[in-house]
């Protein structure tokens, strides 16, 4: 077998699931795998589906707010870890990788457990959008911090020294030199955090309450009941959004390099 043939098979393997979801979203049959004609009615049905609409709203609300918090905290963390010393820093540097590698489910049940313990004292931790945001920020922070820190490592320290030498105080140096130069890293970290939040199912599932259903949770519960064509339509839209997002980011990165 030639390399090209193997590669073609692997691409087919990677895209078969995406293709089947897209194809079946246009299948007229309500149940089963048989093909009974082309239709776009499921997309119309989706528009009528208030559950799907509110899940979309929740998902975006969750992703935007958690990303905003995580990007600010993660950037500060990445900057501080790169620039300053404090006792126990090496240990904390290790701990920062825990959310990156921890199995989703472990983090999810730890949160669930923690919230249920807290609820004995404080009603704020009633499962819902707030608890989901708190959980999402927790796994997003390290990703932002790590991306920002790697951008800082590549930065010539003389640039900040030059700013100080020219009369900029610490804040001015950060605002006018460091921030513009690490902005691509912050944007990249923020986009990573945003995508992680959009994609997350497990942590959301365990920390969500009634009325705080997100798209992944909606898809999961639908799949558990049996896949329906309108879920395929919803998934198709998500897949297309992911493709568009990835392509746009790739193009942006390319134009930046030239």
């Amino acid at each position: 077998m030639s390399l090209n043939f193997i590669a073609a098979l692997l691409y087919l393997f990677l895209y078969a699931p995406l293709a089947v979801v897209i194809v079946y979203s246009f299948n007229a049959a309500r149940f089963g795998a048989g093909w009974s004609g082309f239709t776009t009615k499921w997309y119309g049905a989706l528009w009528e589906n208030s559950l799907a609409l509110s899940a979309t709203k929740n998902t975006l609300l969750l992703a935007v707010s958690s990303t905003a918090i995580a990007t600010v905290l993660g950037t500060m963390l990445g900057y501080g870890m790169n620039r300053f010393r404090f006792p126990g820093k090496a240990l904390f540097g290790w701990f920062l990788y825990v959310p990156v590698f921890i199995p989703d489910i472990v983090m999810a049940v730890a949160m669930l457990l923690f919230y249920s313990l807290l609820r004995k004292w404080c009603s704020l931790f009633e499962l819902g959008l707030t608890t989901m945001i708190l959980a999402h920020v927790t796994f997003q922070i390290p990703f932002v911090a790590i991306v920002v820190r790697s951008r800082l490592v590549g930065l010539d320290p003389a640039l900040e020294e030059a700013a100080g030498d020219l009369g900029a105080n610490e804040w001015q140096t950060f605002r006018h030199v460091t921030l513009p130069l690490i902005l691509p890293g912050i944007v990249a970290g923020g986009m990573l955090a945003f995508t992680l939040s959009l994609d997350d199912f497990v942590v959301s599932f365990f920390t969500s309450g009634p009325g705080a259903t997100t798209l992944p949770i909606l898809i999961y519960s639908s799949v558990k009941r049996g896949i329906t064509p309108d879920i395929n339509a919803l998934s198709t839209l998500i897949v297309l959004a992911s493709i568009a997002g990835t392509v746009v980011v790739t193009l942006l990165q390319r134009t930046k390099k030239v």
Partner: peptide
């Protein structure tokens, strides 16, 4: 970058 759930249920 595509949702794991979707690729799995497919």
């Amino acid at each position: 970058w595509t949702n794991l759930l979707i690729r799995t249920y497919a």
